[in-house]
Amino acid sequence: MTASPVPTAMAPMLEIDGLDAWYGEAQILFGLSLTVGRGEAVALVGRNGAGKSTTLKAIIGLARRRARRLALRGADIAALPTHAIARLGVGYVPEDRRIFTELTVAENLDLGRRTGASDAAPRGPRWSVEEVVALFPNLGGMLDRPGGQMSGGEQQMLSVARALMGDPALLLLDEPSEGVAPIVVEQMIDALLRLKASGLSLLISEQNSALCEAICERAYLIEQGELRWQGAMDGLAAASETAGIFGKI
């Protein structure tokens, strides 16, 4: 089957088949395949260096990659540059948040905003500044504050909010709970549950089992760049305990 150029109503949100990806000269992913259905939340788990971040970067086009199939709602995105993929409705919340520290919160949100009538590609639900502030009330009081003067947890919220401003249909979240206080993780879980309820598809790379178990239906376990296990969230604990990767210490 070849990818049709036009998004189709039936195709899943994200289809990946046989994905190879590289970091510099080193190949990180080897023939990875995964699917994210519409409105579905999927966890991507594995030890550090297994290739979780690289998978997300390969999807958004920030890592060199090659795939038999890499399609968003049926439309082939394997040859598109990063900005074009983002404009098709993919929001990216990177590891380490990557807030523009020199710019204010409002300016950060503004850069995330989709502009121009030219790209009328179908995306997800529309977001305004007021709506993202309603989702993360902490941001409301600090719109004029430079991003660099926020706490890690607040930056994490801003990073998600900034991605939402582009009206994504699929949100890629890279370790949203890493380095964040447990209490902020709880707020993040609440926000992500609401996003999921609004119809967004989520692909979450995580090492925190609480967050995944609260949000995701299915999980993929990768190890050294290869798919090791896939299945319902319930089965993950048993699968990963033997692999010594996920869960409690």
Binding site: L62, H83, P94, R98, E102, L111
Partner: peptide, 13 residues
Amino acid sequence: QDREMVAALGINE
């Protein structure tokens, strides 16, 4: 500060 992130927000870098 971060050109990759600019591209990931849909801006033609």
